[in-house]
């Protein structure tokens, strides 16, 4: 196999002065951009554990000052947060599991040439990728199906994902037919072949599907906004949004009545709206920060597969 080393590892040629200058600027640019991408998260984390007064005065930019965990204790004592965290976790786990199973199963089933009008049903599912009824018809439909203010609206519409099905189908087609045939010779039915042969072999692609759908579920915000009025079913993302906006309104009202109105006092005693906002932000982003470095290669692979297909 021909080595495909990337350009930068090619034998070093002598560099001109211009190239050296270019190199320095290049490196500086990437350091700056990477910093801009990461620093805000660092800032949030550091401020959420720092002394709230110092944080409010804008003194905490690099190192935490007066580390304490009071913010987290207070925030978890807030009414909605534990429920919202549970809802977000539940939709991520259940939604991901169901869409992974469905993608694997459908991707496999659509390779079964004996299925009744297989080509038609495959297209019937795949074509849904290209149109969208729109937000309001979707809302009315969900309402008529009794799915507004219902946890399952987070999960059910996300189960059948044409894109994932195409990915799995392409993958299954690359497995030699002889494997499936050999198993069928031994009397294995369609479902047994799926469970015993296809599923184990599809693990890499299913991991990619799982990671993408888990991030999607965790980050999803619009469905809460549109379908939910019951605060018991709010997701973490939506709760964070309401906190930011409440803090917004609070700042405005405090300004208007010059500090007399402290209508957010119920939230916490020493906690400022800013500290609460930042702490909740950290809680929402932390799972992504933890998961991301370990699964980056899956993300990248998913992108590649998508590109091959798209």
């Amino acid at each position: 196999m021909k080595s495909r080393a990337s350009r930068s590892t090619a034998p070093v040629m002598r560099r001109s002065r211009g190239e050296e200058v270019y190199n320095v600027f290049n490196i500086l640019f990437f350091i700056a951009f990477a910093f801009v991408c990461v620093y805000p998260f660092y800032y949030l984390i550091v401020n959420s554990i720092s002394d709230n007064a110092a944080s409010a005065a804008g003194d905490v930019n690099w190192w935490p000052a007066g580390i304490h965990w009071e913010n987290y204790k207070q925030v978890f004592a807030l009414d909605g947060l534990t429920t919202a965290a549970f809802i977000s976790l539940a939709r991520t786990v259940i939604g991901t599991a169901l869409t992974v199973i469905a993608s694997a199963f459908l991707g496999y089933m659509f390779t079964q040439k004996k299925m009744w009008h297989r080509a038609f049903w495959y297209r019937f599912i795949v074509v849904t990728m290209y149109f969208n009824a729109g937000l309001i018809p979707m809302f009315i439909t969900m309402k008529n199906l009794g799915l507004t203010n219902n946890f399952w609206v987070y999960v059910l519409p996300a189960i059948v994902q044409p894109f994932n099905i195409i990915l799995v189908k392409t993958f299954v087609e690359s497995i030699p037919d002889s494997l499936q045939e050999a198993a069928q010779m031994d009397g294995a039915g369609t479902l047994t072949v799926f469970r015993k042969i296809v599923l184990p072999m599809c693990t890499p692609i299913l991991a990619t599907v799982a990671i993408f759908s888990a991030v999607g579920q965790w980050n999803s915000f619009q469905d809460t906004l549109i379908y939910m009025t019951d605060s018991k079913l709010y997701s973490l993302q939506y709760l964070l949004y309401t906190y930011i906006n409440q803090a917004n309104a609070l700042a405005a009202s405090v300004k208007a009545s010059s500090g007399t109105a402290m209508n957010m006092a119920a939230l916490a005693t020493q906690q400022t709206p800013t500290s609460i906002r930042m702490t909740v932000s950290v809680i929402v982003v932390l799972p992504i920060l933890f998961v991301y470095p370990f699964f980056q290669r899956f993300f990248v692979k998913g992108m590649m597969l998508g590109a091959v297909k798209g």
Binding site: V215, Y238, L240, Y241, I244, V284
Partner: peptide
């Protein structure tokens, strides 16, 4: 990989 809500929080 973060949501727009978090971008707004940032």
């Amino acid at each position: 990989f973060i949501s727009w809500v978090l971008v707004y929080a940032v």
